[in-house]
Amino acid sequence: MIQYPFLEKEITIGVTAPSSGVPTELHELLKMVCNRVKRKGYSVICGDTAWTQDKAKSAPASKCAEEFNEMMMNDDIHIIIPPWGGELLIETLEFIDFDNIQTKWILGYSDISLLLLAITLKTGMATAHGTNFIDLRGEYSDNTTAMWESVLSLKKGESILQLSSEQYQKEWQFDQTTPYVFNFTEKNEWKSISNNLVQIQGRLLGGCIDTIRHLIGTRFGEVQNFKENYIKDEPILWFLENCELSTTDLRRSLVQMKLAGWFTNCSGIMFGRSQANTTVGNYTVEDVYKELAMELQVPIIYDIDCGHVPPQITFINGAYAEVELCSGKGGILQYFI
């Protein structure tokens, strides 16, 4: 059975950096977002790792894990939101105290998704793939990003619908700031291999494929054990996004996931928009999706609101979801059951 944390109205956010921290020259961003969320009524506790960055990490792995473990055990902290992702979170896993994971939300994406997936797989506690802390620094959030509060305030047994965004951000325009941080310029359209009405149901699991693929073959990536112990072998509906992989590296990663049994009893796969997916030869990302759909015989939806091309829907690892795509518009109904 999945355990769902609950976001209270008056909460304290713990900001720790198990991957990358914020370098000195960007401290003003972190101060800005702390002030912004405080004005919204939240309290904030920033750990030491949030303010440091050297050698591609916020701090040595043992220190990162120690701070995360302390925040997880601290009853005065109700949700943990890292400042952003990074590169080397995998180093911390052996030091994370999985036996004492408390039922509280952890929210993030990119490299953070590796920790989120590992926690859900090992403990059965739901985790939240969505915005990072730095991207909450705007005067307000766009409608898609802002849903993180509503989703995490859901009680067990309830459900919530999120719809595809109207537009997305193709590239950052730092000289043209907006009240909601992002620069939305492109019309959003979800796509599918079949080009027909698509309806999929299943238990959500996923994250940034660049990082979560490295859980395969470790004690932190036992998908079959999770299915047997926590969801009674219900089908998995995967959501994946690509940060930096070429099409051939993406293909290798997906084949490895398949060979490792991660796609056994899979009901479908959703892929986020990506600025990566670099074509190799004439091998395109659409070719990757078509081959995977044919091999697995499941629906594949792509260019959804997930990952490094904002905005992004808040996906809950472990939640039951019903997804529908029709005429380029998508909706995801998540149930906390």
Score class of each variant (00 low, 15 high):
residue 141 S to H: 09
residue 197 L to F: 15
residue 17 A to I: 14
residue 2 I to D: 01
residue 95 F to T: 09
residue 111 D to P: 08
residue 251 R to H: 13
residue 82 P to L: 10
residue 133 F to H: 04
residue 160 I to A: 03
residue 226 F to M: 07
residue 96 I to W: 07
residue 257 M to Y: 05
residue 128 A to T: 04
residue 30 L to G: 10
residue 101 I to S: 05
residue 220 F to I: 09
residue 189 E to K: 14
residue 8 E to L: 07
residue 144 T to S: 09
residue 261 G to L: 06
residue 91 E to G: 07
residue 238 W to T: 12
residue 234 E to I: 02
residue 144 T to A: 02
residue 221 G to N: 02
residue 112 I to M: 10
residue 138 G to M: 00
residue 321 A to K: 02
residue 142 D to L: 01
residue 32 M to Q: 09
residue 203 R to M: 11
residue 310 P to C: 03
residue 158 E to I: 01
residue 218 T to F: 08
residue 290 K to R: 14
residue 63 K to M: 13
residue 91 E to V: 02
residue 226 F to A: 06
residue 307 G to N: 11
residue 120 T to G: 06
residue 125 M to P: 01
residue 153 S to Q: 13
residue 188 N to R: 07
residue 32 M to D: 03
residue 48 D to Y: 11
residue 78 H to N: 15
residue 134 I to W: 09
residue 32 M to T: 13
residue 128 A to Q: 01
residue 149 E to N: 04
residue 328 G to T: 15
residue 244 E to M: 12
residue 4 Y to L: 04
residue 183 N to I: 00
residue 321 A to D: 03
residue 109 Y to P: 00
residue 47 G to F: 02
residue 196 N to S: 14
residue 80 I to R: 06
residue 134 I to S: 09
residue 45 I to D: 02
residue 270 M to I: 15
residue 297 Q to I: 01
residue 4 Y to I: 01
residue 259 L to H: 11
residue 271 F to I: 14
residue 227 K to Q: 14
residue 139 E to R: 03
residue 297 Q to L: 07
residue 173 Q to Y: 12
residue 22 V to W: 03
residue 37 V to R: 08
residue 213 R to D: 00
residue 5 P to R: 00
residue 116 L to G: 06
residue 257 M to R: 09
residue 52 T to R: 12
residue 65 A to M: 11
residue 287 D to P: 08
residue 50 A to D: 05
residue 319 A to H: 01
residue 300 I to S: 06
residue 273 R to S: 01
residue 263 F to H: 11
residue 133 F to Y: 15
residue 120 T to F: 06
residue 42 Y to I: 00
residue 213 R to Q: 11
residue 201 Q to S: 14
residue 284 T to F: 05
residue 236 I to A: 04
residue 186 E to K: 04
residue 157 G to F: 00
residue 11 I to R: 13
residue 262 W to P: 04
residue 237 L to D: 01
residue 327 S to K: 13
residue 72 M to I: 11
residue 210 D to K: 14
residue 125 M to Q: 15
residue 172 W to C: 00
residue 114 L to F: 04
residue 212 I to P: 12
residue 231 I to E: 10
residue 114 L to D: 03
residue 62 S to F: 12
residue 108 G to Q: 09
residue 119 I to R: 05
residue 309 V to C: 12
residue 110 S to K: 10
residue 94 E to N: 12
residue 169 Q to G: 01
residue 218 T to P: 08
residue 6 F to Y: 12
residue 72 M to S: 13
residue 288 V to D: 05
residue 309 V to Y: 06
residue 312 Q to P: 02
residue 260 A to Y: 07
residue 298 V to E: 00
residue 171 E to I: 04
residue 105 W to D: 00
residue 144 T to I: 14
residue 167 Q to W: 05
residue 257 M to Q: 09
residue 237 L to K: 08
residue 8 E to H: 10
residue 240 L to I: 12
residue 107 L to E: 04
residue 75 D to H: 12
residue 38 K to T: 11
residue 31 K to Y: 03
residue 123 T to K: 11
residue 283 Y to A: 07
residue 5 P to V: 08
residue 295 E to C: 05
residue 98 F to S: 04
residue 222 E to C: 04
residue 69 N to W: 05
residue 125 M to H: 15
residue 168 Y to H: 12
residue 15 V to S: 06
residue 173 Q to D: 09
residue 195 N to A: 13
residue 186 E to W: 03
residue 149 E to L: 01
residue 276 A to Q: 07
residue 16 T to I: 15
residue 254 L to E: 06
residue 203 R to P: 10
residue 326 C to S: 14
residue 151 V to P: 08
residue 288 V to K: 02
residue 331 G to K: 15
